[in-house]
Nucleic acid binder design. Structure first.
Lengths: 116, 116
DNA sequence: GGAATATGTGAGCATATATTCAAATGAAGG
DNA sequence: CCTTCATTTGAATATATGCTCACATATTCC
């Protein structure tokens, strides 16, 4: 017989049970995954990295990243959805910035990790 | 004429230039995106959250998440690739743990963000 | 050596997602 | 009002990705 899951011989039951009790809810972990997923795209990372230096309008971002405004706007929508960026209107422009300092900190720490 | 990109009227040139100078290299930002991408999946988040409490073998993780060992192993490969988890062999078992405390900190901060 | 078990891996499929294209919305100015 | 321009949005498409299945590898025990 071949089961793809473990047959109970190798499972460290006590430890698994203890960890299981401490785990956050599925719902919470899904939200956490969605949050990191929003950070896990090179376009969105470049947007956020740029915004960590200064607030910028969609046009500025498109110019900076050498991309269409449409593509940038689509990605900003994702970031707004996760409350990672916020914006204010100034005439025809929408001026985006990081939602809070917390986000900048996470980016910093990510960069530290990448730099070994 | 309709260009999808901005025609220079709205671009805050000085700011864009200043930000452009401060930006990390494309290469670095790609790596950063790949790092967050590795965190941006519910299966991998659940694995990491579990490992934040205790080291666990593949079998334990499969049992805890109610998934096949194969699926877990595939995701552990992604996490290894980003140096997010490490493992040691103990007989037939591969016992995984978070690569460093840094990762646990990032998870904590992510959870704080999700909890508003 | 051979059986049993835990883990790793490659191919295939089904889903998710990033960009483009076309069009809509909204604001400023003539 | 009409034009212009910044931004947003929906549909379509091409690519990326997670899981399954089958098989390979590795280790322990007989």
């Amino acid at each position: 017989m071949r089961l793809d899951t473990c047959q109970g011989v190798c499972v460290h039951t006590e430890v698994v049970d203890a960890v299981n009790k401490k785990m956050e809810s599925e719902e919470m972990l899904f939200q956490l995954a969605d949050f990191f997923k929003a950070l896990g795209d090179s376009t969105r990372i470049r947007i956020l990295h740029a915004l960590s230096f200064s607030e910028l309008c969609v046009c500025d971002l498109a110019s900076l990243l050498n991309m269409s405004s449409s593509a940038v706007s689509h990605q900003l929508r994702v970031l707004r959805g996760q409350k990672i960026v916020k914006y204010r209107k100034d005439g025809k422009n929408a001026i985006y910035s990081l939602d809070d300092a917390h986000v900048a900190t996470l980016l910093e720490q990510g960069l530290e990790h990448v730099n070994e």
